[in-house]
């Protein structure tokens, strides 16, 4: 394929997909280690009511109000989960289940009750995202990357996702040691004087930011899949946290790129003429990677510690 075709149609979706995958997989490494993997699932469900409320308040589909609404909803959900868990003395999984299903149901109902037929806002869009539509029409080839005129037409999701990715990398790099210690041995971290509660809260907040930004660009399926599958697969490859994070980045980008390519061109190779959902395909590829790692990864088995539960 020539640059004239590739750059405008595929470059930006590939980059946005990869950035989103990495931004979610990075905090996902620590969430998986801390057994909070399903936080990503909960956050991606409650983003919908946040966006709907933001839309109802502002009356328009603008990015910033929606991001704020989604972030606010994520924050409220985390607080509510904590409240239900503490007040009712309910186990965390069930508390999470109560809160996110309720908020999601509320979001769907609000969406159906309000008149959103004029705008592009529906449940399917929230779930699948629309990676394929994030194209760069001002580009005419590789040389456009160096033209200010053309760069102005790049989908804004690209810059936003890149900024969020940089912020996530910054957070992880800054608190690397503290995160590592507290994820493996929270009690030890506390005796060292680390503020584990605040650190855990910050990790969840960073995950929420990554989830909300990625959700805006690519829908919630990718968010849930990328929070869990690449880190889980990376965990089967190594016993060292640094290498695990590196592997997870490789897996995240591989999933995003292969998933996008398979979704766009796979059906053509098989003789059909329509593409399939890129978001769904990226999740499927990450699942295949996880399956391969679970079958052949050098560190796939649990050693020493007995089966928990």
């Amino acid at each position: 394929m020539s640059g004239a075709e590739f750059v405008p149609l595929s470059l930006t979706p590939l980059l946005i997909g990869s950035f989103a995958a990495m931004a979610c997989a990075l905090p996902g490494n620590f969430l998986v280690l801390r057994r909070q993997a399903l936080i990503g699932d909960a956050i991606s469900h409650v983003v919908l009511p946040g966006i709907v409320v933001a839309f109802l308040l502002t009356g328009m589909v603008a990015t910033w109000p929606m991001m704020l609404g989604a972030g606010g909803a994520a924050l409220i959900a985390v607080l509510l989960i904590e409240a239900v868990r503490r007040i009712g003395r309910i186990e965390p999984g069930a508390a999470m289940g109560v809160v996110f299903t309720t908020m999601f149901a509320g979001g769907v109902l609000l969406l159906e009750l309000s008149d959103t037929s004029s705008v592009h806002l529906d449940v399917e869009h929230a779930l699948y995202g629309n990676l394929e539509s994030l194209i760069w029409l001002d580009a005419f080839g590789w040389h456009s990357l160096f033209e200010a005129e053309a760069l102005r037409g790049v989908p804004p999701e690209l810059w936003r996702m890149a900024a969020v990715l940089v912020a996530v990398i910054g957070f992880i790099a800054l608190f690397w040691r503290a995160l590592a210690i507290s994820s493996f041995d929270e009690g030890f971290a506390r005796t060292l004087g680390l503020r584990t509660g605040a650190l855990g809260g910050a990790l969840v907040a960073v995950s929420a930011i990554a989830a909300v930004a990625a959700f805006d660009a690519v829908g919630s399926i990718i968010v849930i899949a990328m929070f869990i599958c690449p880190p889980a697969a990376a965990r089967m490859m190594t016993n060292q946290l640094g290498r695990q994070v590196a592997w997870s980045m490789v897996f995240a980008v591989t999933s995003a790129v292969l998933g996008y390519v398979f979704a766009g061109y796979g059906p053509l190779w098989l003789g059909f003429d329509n593409s399939v959902s890129a978001a769904g395909m990226i999740a499927v590829v990450s699942g295949i990677i996880l399956a391969l790692a679970a079958l052949f990864g050098p560190h796939r088995a649990r050693r020493g510690a007995p089966l928990a539960g």
Partner: peptide
């Protein structure tokens, strides 16, 4: 059969099956 905890397995299966 792997070192994953149940919540990670749940999340992986949920997202991959749903994506498919």
């Amino acid at each position: 059969h792997t070192r994953l905890s149940e919540d990670a397995s749940i999340g992986a299966v949920l997202s991959v099956f749903f994506g498919f």
